[in-house]
Design a protein around this nucleic acid. Structure first.
Length: 110
DNA sequence: AAATTGACGGTTA
DNA sequence: GTAACCGCCAATT
């Protein structure tokens, strides 16, 4: 109880950055997945905010995060070029083919 | 302090 | 398959 339930922004941001940093080239994660991995389910919107606020000096591969439909960030058309340069598979409608390029952390027993 | 915004997501029509 | 709708929650205005 004593512990205030106040949202710890610094901690959340740190977790998000830590996770995004680990996404390998040629793979992507979704905002929702990152939020979940960070320990904050339902914080997908805040994940987007964290990445938008991320300072460039952190050198984060923030282009490797897309939404659950495989759509890239609005007002950031460069993102698609960056991903294509890493051989991320796009469908004809400019959406990432998550079936092929989503980063699967749990190896389903290859 | 109150209302709006947003790099989202799941459900329903 | 698409589109609208609603729930989400802190940051920003």
């Amino acid at each position: 109880m004593s512990g205030l339930d106040k949202f710890d922004r610094k901690r959340f941001y740190s977790e998000v950055y830590n996770i995004v940093q680990q996404i390998p080239a040629g793979r992507v994660l979704t905002y929702g997945i990152v939020a979940r991995l960070a320990g904050f389910p339902n914080y997908s919107r805040l994940t987007g905010q964290a990445l938008a606020q991320a300072h460039a000096s952190l050198h984060l591969p923030c282009h490797r995060v897309v939404n659950s439909q495989g759509r890239i960030a609005p007002n950031w058309p460069e993102q698609q070029k960056l991903l294509e340069a890493e051989k991320v598979i796009f469908k004809s409608d400019s959406r990432v083919d998550l079936k092929k390029s989503l980063w699967k952390l749990l190896t389903p027993n290859s």
